Computed example of a mutant assay.
Amino acid sequence: MKHIYLIGGTMGVGKTTTCQMLKNKLNNSVFLDGDWCWDMNPFQVTEETKEMVMQNICFLLNNFIKCSAFNHIVFCWVMHEQAIVDDIISRLDTEDCKVHPIALVCSRDALTKRLMKDVAAGQRTEDKILRSLMRIPLYEKLNTTKVDVSSITVEQAADVIIQRFST
């Protein structure tokens, strides 16, 4: 039985670092960040690019599912709407898999502190803070398991996910 971890969360909540840690803690695992499929210049959000990105994500995830080398497939992306999560799952061959939709959530204060560190380090622009804060309530509405990362480390977040889902 393979495990597919679909990990969403607003910008700056720690999806990528948590998923990297999760990949390193789980044997026979692979990690895909949905943002890698949007890495274009100029950044263009059109119906055509949105569909292309979704096809690329699901193509890669299905190839990971088919590959006997992997028991754990870790995927992260913003996934702020249930329709996005449902669309991804509907395109995957999940016959011999357990799919674990997860949302990383945190308090407004914790998110602001994380994003301010990123801004100070030149990794994000300040305009992303308000956008990210505005998306926090969207994750409460999703049909996902919530993991509150407000006051835990990346390693602790990965351990929580492993304890809940990897057996």
Rank of each mutant, 00 (worst) to 15 (best):
G122P: 11
V154Q: 01
D127V: 08
M40A: 06
F75R: 05
L138R: 10
D159M: 09
A158T: 09
N28Q: 13
N56C: 13
K98G: 14
L26T: 14
A110W: 00
I129V: 11
V160Q: 10
C76Y: 12
L61R: 07
R131M: 15
S151Y: 00
K66H: 10
R164S: 12
I57R: 03
C19Q: 02
V147W: 04
V78G: 06
E155V: 04
I57G: 07
L60S: 09
K141Y: 05
Q55G: 13
V13E: 02
M21D: 09
V99G: 07
T167F: 07
M134P: 14
M1C: 06
I136T: 14
N63S: 08
R124N: 07
G12N: 02
C58L: 00
F165M: 05
G8Q: 01
K23Y: 03
T17L: 07
V85P: 04
Y5E: 02
A157G: 04
A120G: 04
T153C: 00
K141P: 12
I7A: 02
F31V: 07
K128M: 12
L26I: 14
A120E: 02
Y5G: 02
I65Q: 07
Q44I: 12
E48C: 01
D39N: 06
G14T: 05
V85N: 10
F43T: 08
Q156N: 10
S68I: 09
S166F: 04
V147I: 13
R114L: 01
Q20F: 09
K98F: 15
V78Y: 07
G12R: 00
D39R: 01
M1S: 08
I162Q: 11
A121G: 02
S150V: 07
I129A: 04
R135T: 15
N28A: 09
K2H: 06
L111E: 00
M134K: 14
N63F: 08
A158I: 08
L142D: 11
I152T: 02
L92Q: 10
L22F: 01
P137I: 11
Q163K: 15
I152P: 00
E47P: 12
W77Q: 14
D159H: 09
I129D: 00
W77F: 15
S90K: 12
M79S: 07
T94I: 12
I7W: 04
C106F: 01
L61W: 06
L133T: 12
K66N: 09
Q156M: 11
S151H: 02
D86Q: 13
R91S: 03
R114T: 08
G8P: 01
I136H: 10
V147C: 03
C106V: 04
L60I: 10
T46M: 08
C19G: 02
C97N: 04
M134T: 15
M116H: 05
T46V: 05
D93A: 09
R114D: 06
W77I: 13
R135M: 15
H72K: 13
P42R: 05
N56T: 14
I65N: 08
Q163R: 15
D96P: 11
Q156S: 11
Q156P: 08
C58R: 02
L130R: 15
D118Y: 13
L32R: 04
E95G: 09
C76S: 15
I88H: 05
S132N: 05
Y5A: 02
D86C: 12
H3D: 12
I162M: 12
S29V: 05
I161S: 05
